[in-house]
Design a protein around this nucleic acid. Structure first.
Length: 473
RNA sequence: GCCGGGGUAGCUCAGUGGUUAGAGCGCCUGACUGUGGAUCAGGAGGUCACGGGUUCGAGUCCCGUCCCCGGUACCA
């Protein structure tokens, strides 16, 4: 028989329990917070009509997985969650507005896979549709702030405003068609540094591999005007606002943007959010649809992972579908990046099993008794697995628990059955001891983390042990 | 998309055109009285990415394809 060669489609990925367990824990935390802020869940189909997907323009076309379905419809996999959201807003006109929703679903993009970047990935979006108020932007920021705080991370949320960036471009006397190029270049500040940005705004630069990247071709005066803003660092939000007010006098779009940030600033003060959220005139973000405040979160202790959350206001996007002015603001969490950063910061636990308890089986004839014990633990809400392998060796079974990362083993052999007792073993304690103990005899005698208790109390004792885990995800 | 480097055991990698392709780790079995780790003894595991070519002979040289890595561009 010809074996089928097992292989994955390029850019796609399996999630084994070891990776999926922390990912699900993180998603649960995110959902809990989204809902606590009153965002309701929304799900939409993976497939949309191509016409819908291309609603925002055809630049997207080459990145969409598309095909003709058996009925002859031109369809494609969604590449983001904003397009389906817009369609929903346009289709269900009786939805009370402002409409607050979260959506956590996979999207597909046919672009080059990179380490940590796949063609199928999950987006975790929150958006508020139908509110032009800065209160909506504040709420989005508050959610981002709360998630990062709950993860006990050292983070910074940078905020800026597209109106301010537009004003800078106007103040620097740069032609309108170059606006977006300028924004994208500013967006590279973290990556290439101020010097690199200056080169890219002007003639261009050579990268590490020696390749030449052409610049935008601005003149010295224009470049200087831009750098004046992006190199500015204030001590607090108020200081940055005053700097901007002074520098953008007379550019009305800029003053409008500053006023918006001032309102957000006041709201944040009222919420007690101060140092972690900063106004940063150098924040640009690459997307062209942003119209107002924009935000981005970075982890100070893991800067190489880049932004882990981002978003902003997009007041003109949804009207492409609705035909009427529909202001909107929102944000998205880069869950894979965030997870990678958490792993790097050693803030996630990696195990191959969800189970907290393995019940070892030494006397197969008494399997009904073992099942009853498993049931007792399960009824108490403890994730329990009963050994199902063929070995009756306790050694094998403990090794099985060890390899799966199951922290607690329950041992019931002839002695325990006779005395109506149960032995509970905390494998984490042994793991610590094993680095010290060199003699097998001593190892066996120590029986680390092991207690034998009356059957009546074993559920309670295990509950305590399960609770006693560190605060990792 | 473009430039560069790579693909040999589950993992990390050695292997000058010349016998039957190796190592370390991991895995499996056993010993050490009903206890993970350590130790000891044994074992399994390979289409040398795939296809073609050169050659008496290819893991090794050449071409193509696929995939991975680094850089760059793009990223709703």
């Amino acid at each position: 028989m010809n074996k089928i060669k097992p292989r994955l489609i390029r850019g796609f990925k399996d999630y084994l329990p070891k990776e999926l367990l922390p990912k699900k824990a993180l998603l649960n935390l995110i959902i809990e917070i989204y809902e606590r802020y009153g965002f309701s869940p929304l799900e939409t189909p993976a497939l949309e009509y191509k016409e819908v997907l291309l609603g925002y323009g055809s630049e997207a076309e080459k990145q969409i997985y598309q095909f003709e379905d058996p009925e002859g419809n031109e369809v494609g996999l969604r590449f983001d969650l904003t397009v389906p959201l817009s369609r929903v807003i346009a289709m269900y006109k009786d939805l009370p507005k402002p409409f607050k929703r979260y959506q956590i679903q996979p999207v597909w993009r046919y672009d080059k896979p990179d380490p940590g970047r796949f063609r199928e990935f999950i987006q975790c979006d929150i958006d508020i549709i139908g509110s032009a108020s800065m209160d909506a932007d504040t709420e989005i920021l508050a959610v981002m702030y709360e998630i990062l705080s709950r993860l006990e991370l050292n983070f910074k949320i940078r905020i800026n405003n597209r109106k301010i960036l537009n004003a800078i471009v106007i103040a620097a006397n740069i032609s309108e068609d170059k606006t977006l190029d300028v924004f994208r270049t500013i967006d590279k500040l973290d990556k290439v540094g101020l010097k690199g940005v200056v080169q890219l705004l002007g003639k261009g630069r050579k990268d590490q591999s020696g390749a030449f990247i052409p610049g935008i071709g601005l003149n010295q005066i224009q470049i200087q005007k831009i750098t004046e803003f992006i190199r500015y660092e204030g001590n607090n939000r108020e200081e940055v606002l005053q700097f901007l007010e002074k520098s953008l006098q007379g550019v009305s779009i800029g003053l409008e943007g500053i006023e918006e940030l001032r309102q957000i600033h006041k709201n944040l003060e009222a919420l007690g959010i101060k140092e972690h959220v900063v106004i940063d005139p150098s924040l640009a973000r690459g997307l062209d649809y942003y119209t107002g405040p924009i935000f981005e979160a970075v982890l100070i202790d893991a800067p190489r992972f880049g932004s882990v959350m981002g978003g902003g206001r997009y007041d003109h996007l949804i009207e492409i579908f609705t035909g009427e002015h529909t202001p909107a603001t929102g944000a998205s969490i880069g869950i894979d990046r965030l997870l990678a950063a958490l792993a790097y910061l050693k803030k996630i636990e990696t195990r191959n099993s969800v189970a907290d308890v393995l019940i070892t089986v030494m006397v197969p004839e008494k399997k009904i008794e073992y099942f009853k014990i498993a049931t007792q633990l399960r009824n108490a809400g403890i994730k329990t697995t009963l050994y199902m392998g063929k070995s009756v060796s306790i050694s094998k079974q403990l090794k099985y628990a060890d390899r799966l990362g199951i922290p607690i083993a329950v041992i019931i052999g002839p002695d325990e059955f006779e005395k109506n007792q149960i032995t509970i073993k905390d494998l984490r304690k042994g793991a610590v001891l094993s680095t010290i103990i060199k003699e097998r005899k001593e190892w066996l005698e120590k029986k680390p983390g092991q207690i034998t208790v009356a059957k009546e109390e074993f559920v309670e004792r295990i509950k305590e042990l399960v609770k006693n885990q560190d605060g990792k995800l």
